[in-house]
């Protein structure tokens, strides 16, 4: 499994790029479709990397958020 440090770097880089992309699109520097295409590619990676960074490692307790 990939190290937490590397995953954190990917998550932060993607988050920064998504926010930066938004500001570029908002400012009219890039077209909306281009930003949306970027999100379609980057958002799934962001979701999985965030989970893999956050998840409990083996032998850790991993049952929060049961909800009931």
């Amino acid at each position: 499994m990939v190290k937490k440090k590397h995953l954190a770097m990917v998550v932060l880089a993607l988050a920064a790029m998504m926010v930066f992309g938004f500001s570029l699109e908002y400012g009219g520097y890039i077209p909306l479709w281009f930003y949306e295409a970027f999100l379609v590619g980057s958002f799934p990676v962001f979701v999985l990397c965030t989970g893999l960074w956050w998840m409990a490692r083996e032998h850790d307790e991993d049952t929060p958020f049961i909800g009931y």
């Binding site: 499994m1 965030t50 989970g51 893999l52 956050w54 998840m55 409990a56 490692r57 083996e58 850790d60 991993d62 049952t63 929060p64 958020f65 049961i66 909800g67 009931y68």
Partner: peptide, 20 residues
């Protein structure tokens, strides 16, 4: 029944589970 936000909790819960 579960609370209405149960599926959101599920998402967070699953993302915290030890995974391979």
């Amino acid at each position: 029944g579960p609370p209405v936000w149960q599926e959101i909790l599920h998402m967070f819960k699953f993302s915290f589970k030890s995974t391979w």
